[in-house]
Design a binder for these strands. Structure first.
Lengths: 209, 209
DNA sequence: TTTGTATTGTTAGTTTATTAACAATAAAAC
DNA sequence: GTTTTATTGTTAATAAACTAACAATACAAA
């Protein structure tokens, strides 16, 4: 299949979550406008996304919940699953590990890293923490392909480089430091300060009108 | 000034952060390609954004760092500042509070809320925690206009409604539950599960090529 | 059976965001 | 003093994302 648009992939993830809830409620079929309502977008967008993944529902009956869940799984997940690590065990790193605990079976956090020797001894929500200088070894040994970066901004750039050297294929950067990675490494991320300032700007602008 | 594009606002926040570092290093002027390099975008985009905010640099000398910082401030910040609260004191809520501690003077987290009576007694990084049923009172009393939502997904929708009723003007939703708010309330947010699944999809796609 | 209705799938249009192109010009080089 | 160069500001072109429009059709109602 051709590569899907960025935003469509995001929504597929959301569709699946909503569909899993539907399935738990023994709902077997769902209309585009129902699914749209669950995540507050338009029915057209749902239909268009579903068209892009090549699925087709039945007229006047909607989409088969089971089939759609399993198709999205085949698109997003890999057969054997992917391993993920968290680099930097501050409040945020811990929050993420706990949050994911048992949530997604095809994406498992199998290792954490920190520079602080105190933390290295610990196991966080079942995830063992290794010293950061073993990054490369552990990543290669365990075949980890995605890293979640929650280290302090000052060291983010260097750690990012190490991660690439270790063969990581995707980095999610939660530090305020912009990273640059090579062509074939996926780079995602989120900056909480920027997002708050953005909110402030639009709140301010709304107020002035 | 006309309302700025979404993405431009985001970048302005990033420009300012980069510029503050430049100022700390006693750099007085900066070229578009230098600023672009710092956050890994193109010089054209920098120039275009700066054009949109109506600033103009000097040819062959670049932009005045001080002036640009202060202009971005006048655009994003409000004179008197805005107050922010964090709703839900789990690992993530604590992480956010600590993270912002003293970072931005014009945006201050002044209150936290939680349902757990144990947490209500506490002060987190200088921010007092109130019981969640005092949401409306405290928000109005303190004139809080932005809320950061880190409660469990199951209660997100109800808390969101209460926030609007309390007069909140912007919500940043860190729960996986989609929120719907009225027209004139700003809604931002981020979903860590979706972003990880998205990373997985692109890592997978890259590998297949 | 025929007509009407609800819903999908898809194409065309619109908006938003990014990138390319280039005129204008101040400073530097000669 | 003239030419070259580096850099800005802006317009035009392209790409990505979203929205509207509507043909096709299965089912329900008459």
């Amino acid at each position: 299949m051709k590569i899907l648009p960025d935003k469509t992939v995001e929504r597929l993830s959301q569709y699946r979550r909503a569909l899993l809830i539907c399935r738990a409620e023994n709902k077997t079929h769902i209309f585009s406008h129902e699914l749209a309502g669950l995540i507050h977008i338009t029915p057209v967008q749902v239909r268009r996304d579903i068209m892009l993944i090549g699925y087709t529902g039945t007229l006047r009956k909607g989409y088969d919940v089971h089939e759609l869940i399993s198709l999205i799984g085949r698109i997003i997940d890999t057969e054997e699953g992917l391993r993920v690590c968290v680099v930097g065990i501050g409040d945020l790193g811990r929050a993420i590990i706990r949050y994911f605990k048992g949530k997604r079976t095809k994406l498992v956090i199998t290792a954490a890293f920190d520079a602080n020797p105190e933390k290295v001894k610990c196991v966080y929500s079942g995830v063992p923490c290794y010293p950061i200088d073993q990054l490369e070894t552990v990543i290669k040994e365990q075949g980890i392909s995605i890293a979640i970066l929650t280290v302090p901004g000052e060291v983010a750039a260097t750690v990012g480089q190490t991660l690439e050297k270790a063969g990581i294929k995707g980095i999610i950067n939660y530090t305020p430091t912009p990273l640059n990675v090579s062509e074939n490494t996926y780079l995602g991320g989120y900056d909480m300060i920027t997002s708050l300032e953005k909110a402030a700007y639009f709140v301010k602008s709304n107020r002035e009108m």
